[in-house]
């Protein structure tokens, strides 16, 4: 009896051992002899550049790379033929953005809208990965600061330096769902040091939604919507809505789009958008991004 009871478990152990050891000896798959280790791979290229349109995307400027951006927003298209649908006027921004490490990027820029200087830092807290240590999302924190240097009307008192400061804190959460489709959500807090009246809040909260769909290897269609969800704001200001295309040609990415935001500095995209899509308050605009490799990221 004793024997019989031991037989089955022993036999199973034997089969198990056999299976474990015999597996790599199959002639067809020699590489199985190395074991089935699955490497962890970072998911990249969720967006073509580090901007969806106005909003920061899930991508950082790569380490060792400088991204030089020239951005234009022409006048509102509802101005008609007289202004050639806005092409006679332009709001513009020059930006320099640097990839410092594979998680950290920083940049600065200068926009003609209210003569604004801006700077940001962006840190990737989590990165989407596949393989052994898979992670489903990319999460990045962005902090921006901007200062308006436009002179006030001569009849108004000169503002303090700090009165012109504006801040944003953004938490990007997103995922590259497939080769073609990526989507991100971003809770955003905007703080303005000075607002025109007591009824208007200094702090405004928004939730941005943005996505891209690749049409071909070189062209994608992008959209973003940034509604204000909390905080009193002057009713003349609208939620920012933009729609556009990314066109990649070797070292350049051309982003062509329609947007109701005039500014290209984060706080004023979020809280000072005046265009109304329904009434033709739309700008045609573009961002041109050109990257320069400053140092070899492998070194």
């Amino acid at each position: 009896m004793q024997k019989d009871r031991l037989f089955l478990p022993t036999f199973l152990v034997f089969l198990f051992t056999l299976g474990l050891v015999a597996q790599p000896t199959t002639e067809d798959d020699l590489l199985a002899a190395l074991g089935d280790e699955e490497p962890t791979i970072l998911v990249d290229a969720s967006f073509k550049t580090n901007r969806v349109i106005n909003l920061h995307s899930l991508e950082n400027t790569a380490p060792g790379v400088m991204d030089f951006k020239i951005s234009h927003r022409f006048g509102f298209v509802d101005q008609g033929v007289y202004d050639l649908f806005g092409l006679d006027n332009a709001s513009m921004r020059l930006g320099f953005e640097f990839g410092l490490t594979d998680r950290l990027a920083a940049g600065f820029g200068r926009a003609s809208y209210q003569k604004t200087y801006d700077g940001f830092i962006k840190y990737k807290l989590f990165r989407q990965k596949t393989g052994e240590k898979a992670f489903p999302l990319t999460v990045a924190y962005i902090s921006t600061v901007a200062i308006k240097t436009i002179k006030p009307p001569t009849d108004k008192p000169k503002p303090y330096f700090s009165s012109n400061m504006n801040y944003t804190h953004q938490l990007l959460i997103g995922r590259k769902f497939s080769d073609k489709f990526s989507f991100e959500v971003a809770p955003i807090l905007v703080h303005r040091n000075i607002v025109p009246t007591a009824a208007i809040d200094n702090d405004i909260i928004l939730i941005a939604l943005a996505g891209r769909m690749k049409l071909t290897k070189w062209v994608s269609v992008n959209a973003e919507y940034i509604p204000i969800v909390a905080g009193n704001i002057d009713p003349q200001y609208k939620n920012s809505l933009s729609l556009g295309f990314d066109i990649e040609t070797g070292g350049h990415v051309f982003q062509l789009h329609f947007t109701n935001s005039t500014s290209m500095s984060d706080h004023s995209i979020f809280t000072e958008t005046v265009g109304d899509w329904a009434k033709g308050g739309i700008h045609f605009g573009f961002n041109v991004s050109r990257v320069f490799t400053l140092w070899d990221k492998r070194s």
Partner: peptide, 21 residues
């Protein structure tokens, strides 16, 4: 005398990040 090689394409490292992309 049989042999096999396998390489992950994403594991290729380039000097320029854009080239790699």
């Amino acid at each position: 005398k049989k042999l096999q090689f396998a390489v992950l394409i994403k594991g290729f490292q380039f000097k320029k990040a854009l080239m790699q992309e």
